[in-house]
Nucleic acid binder design. Structure first.
Length: 225
DNA sequence: GCGACAG
DNA sequence: ATCTTGTCGC
């Protein structure tokens, strides 16, 4: 394919048109190695007052959840942050980081929404369609949709609904912590999306793939501590 | 028209 | 996202 932006002309309106077009290509069924061998987590941070976009990619062994590699890619920031168009700002850096990993992951976790998006193409879904890789979106806040508050225990969840459609889950990953917004991105079912987030938790609010990528992208240190 | 609004 | 230490609550 290209780089994930097809024939986008650079305008806001055309970006939305492309999102609706790419959203039609999203696959919401489980279609990845069973069991997956390699997992990967992705997140973005910024340097120089936002002039540079820094993407972090961490590869983990699916069985042990231990990181086996981590890469950082820096690219010039081109677009401003616009709610609903996040991927147009961050996807280029994420793809650059992906290219640096020593192995192609079997399942990817991206910090942000999957299909829990106004046009069903959050950054995790865009990443999935652009790369063809199975992806799950793990966000810290809701972009759109309504929901009931999930119970207090880890694992408790409620449905996130937008315009009558089921678009994701509100998941309590850890006691006394705000719930996560989990939604499938590509080649992953609604149920597997939450199951995999739960299976990769390590006592923190965020699942390991995203938690580790977060630390690196935000310049807090390496894979230790 | 008004408020909300991933990172 | 980012600027940033201690502090309140469980």
């Amino acid at each position: 394919m290209n780089r994930g932006f097809g024939d986008w002309d650079g305008s806001i309106e055309d970006a939305k048109r492309l999102q609706r077009q790419l959203a039609e290509q999203v696959v919401l069924r489980d279609d990845f190695a069973d069991p997956p061998r390699w997992l990967a987590g992705f997140d973005v941070g910024f340097e120089q007052e936002g002039a540079i976009t820094r993407a972090a990619a961490v590869l983990l062994d699916a069985e042990s959840l231990l990181p086996v590699a981590s890469e950082v890619a820096r690219v010039d920031t081109t677009m401003p942050y616009v709610p609903g168009l996040l991927s147009f700002r961050e996807l280029p850096a994420l793809l650059a980081a992906l290219d640096r990993l020593p192995h192609v992951p079997d399942l990817v976790f991206v910090d942000g929404q999957g299909i829990a998006h106004p046009r069903r193409l959050g950054i995790a879904a865009h990443f999935g369609v652009a790369t063809g890789l199975p992806a799950i979106g793990v966000a810290k806040k809701v972009l759109c949709g309504r929901h009931e508050a999930p119970g207090p225990s880890p694992g408790d969840r409620t449905a996130l609904i937008h315009r009558g459609e089921r678009i994701g889950w509100m998941l309590r990953s850890k006691a006394r912590c705000n719930p996560l917004v989990v939604s499938p991105g590509h080649r992953v079912s609604m149920d597997s999306a939450v199951d995999w987030v739960l299976r990769t938790l390590r006592g923190y609010r965020l699942p390991e793939p995203t938690r580790l990528a977060d630390r690196i992208a935000s310049r807090r240190g390496d894979l230790l501590g």
